[in-house]
């Protein structure tokens, strides 16, 4: 298949509206290049991102996940990212524990003024995910098409 040669990862990025999303905006306005592999989901706070969302993205075939919020101390809602930090620490350890490659699910802090840093984060996350190859673990597959081809 051509997939192996031309494969480009799809990375779902959950970005906090108040910082990383604005950081992505700034990167664009400032013309900092970053790989087009990310699909951005704007969330009100990194504390809003639940484990269900992350796992759901993995299940639906995301090759990588990036959750990015405000630096500790900078949360628009005072403490959202502090709670998120505890939750993500446990989640990323648990995913590692069951054998999900480290680097599939990434977390970062990027503020609204860090356009260049945002581009760097996306660059490095994309490189990591590329190095890992397409996601296979916890990716749900339905072979409707294959069955159809068999019939046809």
């Amino acid at each position: 298949m051509t997939e192996t040669t031309n494969w480009e990862p799809k990375i779902i990025a959950f970005l906090c509206n108040w910082c990383s999303y604005a950081g992505a905006d700034l990167a664009g306005v400032s013309r900092f290049q970053y790989p087009p592999n990310i699909r951005i989901v704007r969330v009100p706070c990194s504390g809003r991102v639940s484990e269900n969302m992350i796992m759901s993205a993995l299940k639906s075939g995301a090759d990588g996940i990036l959750v990015s919020g405000c630096h500790p101390g900078d949360c628009h809602y005072i403490s959202g990212n502090y709670f998120a930090r505890r939750r993500f620490a446990l989640l990323s350890n648990l995913l590692d524990f069951i054998g999900i490659e480290s680097g599939r699910v990434n977390f970062s802090w990027v503020s609204a003024s860090e356009g260049e840093q945002f581009a760097e984060v996306v660059q490095s996350v994309t490189e990591r995910v590329k190095a890992l190859g397409p996601a296979t673990r916890l990716v749900k597959k339905i072979d409707a098409l294959e069955t159809e081809l068999l019939i046809a």
Binding site: K59, S60, K140, K141, I142, A144
Partner: peptide
């Protein structure tokens, strides 16, 4: 019905 990436069953 389950649909994943455009494939459904």
């Amino acid at each position: 019905d389950e649909v994943v990436r455009g494939q459904g069953r």
